[in-house]
Every structure is written in structure tokens, then in C-alpha cells.
């Protein structure tokens, strides 16, 4: 008598198998009718579910997430190892101003989405307007951040002043650099949009840039809560 595996296990195995096999599955071509290599070879005729550019961007966002996960993990270790946090005799972080700044950055995500929606309808003026507004909001965010940094340095909070300063400047600085990078990219896309390079059918660079912008924007509230509020 052979022990039969419970049907539920079998079903689950078959389901997983099928799920994996179906990712990007292509129907096998029909067998050739007169032998040889079958139907005339050609380039793949399908349009992938997710375009190369978007898939590549998703990969990049995954890598960026892990980079910040490393930094955030480091911050949490140091923050919860400290007996008193924030340490005494060190300047406090500007919670209110930065809170307003957070709203500014979140707004830039909304304008970015409007820009993408505009070009999906072929509205080039809407695209340029949306991208321009996004860039202005992003630059405003960076400006306020820079001003607050300068003030904090003036109050005596520097990278060398213990783990409080080191973690703050490293995490917020890493995010700031990403905003700078995203802003430069956004500028390039904006110039190309200005010149009318995008249309309702061909605007992948806008989508990819918007994805990265959203990544940078939605990373910020996480850092704000962790670094400023906890």
C-alpha cells in the first residue's frame, strides 16, 4: 500500500507550478506543417506585459530600497542603543518646518501624476505644466532642507557630534542627494517635453522618471517619521 499525499498538498503544488509557469508565458508555436523550422522565423511578436524600461526601473527601485533599508537599519540600531534620544545638549530637529516641507514634497507627487495623465491623453501643455510644477516643488523642498541644515550646523549639530548628528546627516543627506538626482533627471525630461518629444503613444521616459520621482517622494515620509518624530 503506497501512502498517498493529501490532495490539498498536491493541489497547492500544482497551483504554484502553474503560477510560475504562466509568468510571461508564451504559447508554444504550432508544429510545422511541412517539416523544417515551422513558420517563418521572426522577431517576437508579443508586446511584453511590462516594458523593458519600466521593469528596469522597478529593479532599480528595488536596489534603492535595499540601500535605504541598510541605512535605516543602521539608524535604528544606534537610535535604540542610545540611553537618551535625542541626546542632551544637542539641538532639536525642526519638526514643524520639515512637516510643512513633507507636504510640499507629497504635493509634487500629485503634480507628477497629473503630468503623466496629461501626456497619456496627448496633452503636451499639461505635461510641461505638470513637470514644471513638480520641479518647482522639488526645488522648494531642497531649498528648505538646505536652509534647515545650515541652521542646524550653526547650532552645533555636525556629523562628528555623536550618533545623533551622524545618523541625521547620513540618512537625510542620502535622501537629499537622491532628490538632487531625481531633479536633474526631471529637468532633462522637462526640456524634452518642452521640445514636444512625447506623445500619447510614446512617453515611456516620462513614466520612468515619474516612477523614480514617486520613489524619492514616498521614501521621505518614512525617513521623516523615523528620524524626526521617533
Amino acid at each position: 500500500m503506497t501512502p498517498a499525499s493529501p490532495p490539498a498538498v498536491d493541489d497547492a503544488a500544482v497551483a504554484v507550478d502553474r503560477l510560475l509557469a504562466d509568468i510571461g508565458r508564451l504559447p508554444p508555436p504550432p508544429p510545422p506543417e511541412e517539416g523544417g523550422e515551422g513558420r517563418p522565423w521572426g522577431e517576437p511578436e508579443r508586446t511584453p506585459l511590462v516594458s523593458n524600461a519600466v521593469l528596469g526601473m522597478l529593479g532599480f527601485m528595488g536596489a534603492e530600497t535595499m540601500l535605504f533599508a541598510g541605512l535605516i537599519a543602521g539608524f535604528l540600531v544606534l537610535r535604540y542603543a542610545a540611553v537618551v534620544w535625542p541626546p542632551p545638549f544637542q539641538p532639536r530637529l525642526p519638526i514643524e518646518v520639515t512637516g510643512v516641507n513633507t507636504v510640499v514634497l507629497l504635493l509634487s507627487s500629485a503634480t507628477m501624476i497629473r503630468a503623466v495623465r496629461a501626456i497619456r491623453r496627448g496633452n503636451q501643455a499639461g505635461l510641461v505644466g505638470g513637470l514644471g510644477l513638480t520641479a518647482v516643488l522639488g526645488a522648494a523642498f531642497l531649498g528648505v532642507q538646505g536652509y534647515e541644515w545650515a541652521r542646524l550646523v550653526g547650532f552645533g549639530l555636525t556629523v562628528t557630534s555623536g550618533s545623533y548628528g551622524a545618523t541625521f546627516y547620513t540618512l537625510i543627506g542620502a535622501h537629499g542627494l537622491h532628490v538632487v538626482g531625481a531633479l536633474i533627471w526631471l529637468g532633462i525630461v522637462l526640456v524634452r517635453a518642452w521640445r514636444g518629444r512625447f506623445s500619447a503613444r510614446a512617453h515611456t521616459p516620462v513614466v520612468v522618471c515619474a516612477m523614480y520621482w514617486s520613489f524619492v517622494v514616498f521614501l521621505w515620509p518614512v525617513l521623516y517619521v523615523l528620524v524626526y518624530l521617533t
Binding site: 510560475l20 509557469a21 510571461g24 508565458r25 508564451l26 517576437p44
Partner: peptide, 10 residues
């Protein structure tokens, strides 16, 4: 993910 030839399933 995207560039497999026709018939090349995972």
C-alpha cells in the same frame, strides 16, 4: 523576463 524567443517559456 521580456526578451525570450517565441516558445521559450520559463
Amino acid at each position: 523576463v521580456n526578451m525570450r524567443a517565441p516558445g521559450m517559456t520559463l
